[in-house]
Simulated scan of single mutants.
Amino acid sequence: MTQHTLHGRSDDEILWFQRRSFLQAAASWSALGGISTAAAQGRSNIVELSGEALLNGRRRLPQQTVQTGDVIITGPQSKLVFVLGNSAFHVRQNSQLTVERGATLNVVSVLRLLQGAVVSVWGKGVQRQITTPTLTAGIRGTGAYTEIFDNQGGNSYFCNCYGTVDLSAGSDRVVSTSSYHQAFWGEVQAKSGRMLTPGKAINHSDEEVEYLARLVNQHTAWQIAGKKGMKDGKGYMQDLPGQSHPAEMLVH
């Protein structure tokens, strides 16, 4: 297993994909045909829920489906894994988010994170975003990890695990193209004049992104390449001279 760096999180949160309950649930989900079959049969699109989650202020009931437009809140020691359209999501404990409706009922246009953290894998599509109070990420098809750090004044962390993302915070704009974990901070207050600053790869692992991708019949960039890069937050497969983090090249 790949190593991961923790910042205010526990190993247990990061290693959720190793639990027998999830492995059984994921195997059942795939064997039953995934999201298309679940929708046709009227089955829930929730792959696994441990602990307690509220949907639109009410406790989630057996066989209830997460729909676009829903407000999701997870409690302590809870997690929620679900699939919507060609995208898969793992909502960590003590999180609050809204999945806003896109062109159809099963297309997420905006994942609006207000508290906590979420790992997500998105199939290809247009006009989709992840937003936090301090940054906006335009998604083209990627794996991502997003977290809000209340203990750092509400700074947002965003890792473009792979793919292309249009990132903005304040007046800063960056196109992030990543093969292997390109990480950013969306600052509450500017640092050296910048609202987008470089980050390290923290609080998520390759394997949990891979498991989410598997739920929607996708592969990560490193699985396709058959190799992994330097998990330093810069986003490259190879550490070559002259490579800089995009946030370091912002001009003010």
Rank of each mutant, 00 (worst) to 15 (best):
E52H: 13
T164I: 11
T134I: 01
D11F: 08
A53M: 12
A88G: 07
G186K: 05
I73F: 09
N203A: 05
T142R: 01
A40L: 15
M230W: 08
I202M: 01
S10A: 07
Q238F: 12
T68G: 02
I46F: 02
T164F: 03
D70V: 04
V110C: 02
H245L: 04
G154Q: 09
Q218R: 14
T98I: 07
L15E: 05
G33E: 08
L113A: 13
F184G: 09
G226L: 06
R9A: 10
T134F: 01
G138E: 02
I202T: 06
V118W: 00
N106R: 12
L212R: 08
L49P: 04
K227I: 04
V119H: 08
S205P: 09
M230N: 10
S178A: 15
I46Q: 03
Q93R: 11
S176E: 09
R128F: 03
R60N: 00
K231Y: 05
D150F: 04
V174S: 07
R60F: 04
P198R: 08
N94P: 06
S44R: 07
D11E: 11
W16K: 00
A144K: 02
Q77F: 06
N106W: 10
R9S: 06
A221V: 02
S179F: 10
C161H: 07
N106Y: 07
R92I: 01
D172Q: 07
A225R: 11
A169C: 14
L240I: 03
V81A: 03
D70H: 07
T197M: 03
V71G: 09
A39P: 05
D239I: 11
G102P: 09
V107C: 09
A144Q: 09
G199E: 05
Q189E: 14
A137Q: 06
S178Y: 01
I130Q: 04
G85E: 02
Q243Y: 13
V209W: 00
E248T: 08
G138T: 05
T177E: 08
E52R: 15
R173V: 08
Q67V: 05
N94Q: 15
I148W: 05
N151G: 02
R112G: 00
S95D: 02
E52M: 12
G163L: 06
Q24N: 15
H252D: 14
I202A: 01
N203M: 01
V108M: 11
D166P: 02
R140K: 15
T98K: 14
R214W: 01
V121E: 03
V99Y: 03
L6M: 11
L105H: 13
